[in-house]
Design a protein around this nucleic acid. Structure first.
Lengths: 217, 217
DNA sequence: CGATTTGTTGAGGAATATCAAACTTGGTGG
DNA sequence: CCACCAAGTTTGATATTCCTCAACAAATCG
């Protein structure tokens, strides 16, 4: 069963990912839900590939808030930093299985060039993600943010029934909203028959067009 | 007089910038206020160094809004994209003078290596900027955003009297606020004697500590 | 099954946007 | 130098959105 998780990721990303290497030489590591994978300020030696489950990266702030930078799903690579320190913390969103390798192992196996390429691709993707995230926050209402978020999940899911990897609090932290507002928007979208939640972690898109219409910036 | 503009930038950035090369081989180009330097979707062949004046990069959106991604000041390099197309537009914030070079010219003069380094450093800086900007938008109030913005300018200015390179609308677009709100916050900060505006484009920080206290996330 | 966490709903309030008007500033020409 | 004009900025009144606090419901876990 677990072996299946190591198969190519179910979603396509525009950027070529040199993750075959990681697939080959990575060491399996399991993390329990909410377990810390690495902390803010820790040395950044390892490279991670999500095999199963999901991961969030976030900033911890003095006032207790914890804005989420990004969610990583199976097939995604994370943990590569430009400096030698992690600027964000990473935690398991759910129980998850990661493939882990050290930078030196990657160099030993694939050469300096492979590492550079991987680093570059990861950084490019991070920049794109962050810019997209920024746009979402600058110029969207709560309804637009939630719609866009759900639509994004739907687009990368092969299955019509979509599993939410995260709870309302994580969504709220990512979208820059409170859990109450997220909840209200979801209820609202349901009342208008744009989406339908089977349970609070499972939903189906009912009217993709209308949803996209709302989400558009 | 102009020659002075080509001197090292007045502000320090944490990232080493391979801009000597650009200083040497760059071609001077002047742009008038609000002139487009490049547009969204255009081919990204050129690398720009701000010699004097300032530049904004922004997304143009269907509804007429134009969230600003970043402001570039003398000494800053911009225009390097990871793909071969500009994802943002760049415009002159004020009359400005740029040093411009093609990628191929940089390779010819400094080698592939130099270009790679420059590209990497620029991307790293962009990523940091974007993350910072993101944090500003996720978790700050209008007062905090404006305070942080003014403080940021103050920190990189050698002069106690700080020139605002942009008008209220540009500030608002960058901070994710309306011009009215920006204006009100500035008035408010003045009433509390944290800053003092000589004119609407010139200010002095009166109580740096208090300003930093407000700006802190 | 009870206990605990997580999610939903409601009422009220705070922050920011919107719309409209007045005021400043900077430039231009008399 | 001053009057005038246009653009940019500030201020005020009102509307809207989202947050806060509180109660309740549902799901999860031992």
């Amino acid at each position: 069963m677990l072996a299946q998780s190591f198969a190519p990721p179910p979603r396509a990303t525009p950027i070529a990912r040199a993750d075959n290497l990681l697939q080959r030489i990575g060491v399996r590591m399991a993390f329990a839900k909410d377990e810390e994978i690495y902390g803010q300020g820790e040395a950044a030696n390892l490279i991670y590939l999500v095999a199963s489950g999901a991961v969030r990266t976030s900033h911890f702030m003095v006032d207790g808030r914890r804005p989420i930078d990004h969610f990583y799903y199976p097939g995604d690579i994370f943990g590569l930093e430009v400096g030698d320190e992690h600027t964000l913390a990473a935690e398991a969103l759910s129980d998850c299985l990661l493939l882990v390798a050290t930078r030196s192992a990657l160099v030993a196996e694939g050469g300096e060039r492979a590492l550079q390429t991987m680093l570059r691709d990861t950084m490019v993707r991070d920049l794109q993600n962050t810019r997209e995230h920024l746009m979402l926050l600058v110029c969207k209402t709560a309804r637009q943010r939630v719609s866009g978020f759900l639509l994004g999940l739907a687009e990368r899911s092969p299955d019509p029934v979509i599993e939410l990897a995260m709870g309302r609090q994580d969504m709220a932290d990512y979208l820059g909203l409170t859990i109450e507002t997220v909840s209200r928007m979801i209820t609202d979208l349901q009342n208008n028959h744009l989406v339908e939640f089977q349970s609070c972690r499972q939903f189906v898109v009912r009217d993709r067009k209308a949803l996209a219409g709302i989400a558009a910036c």
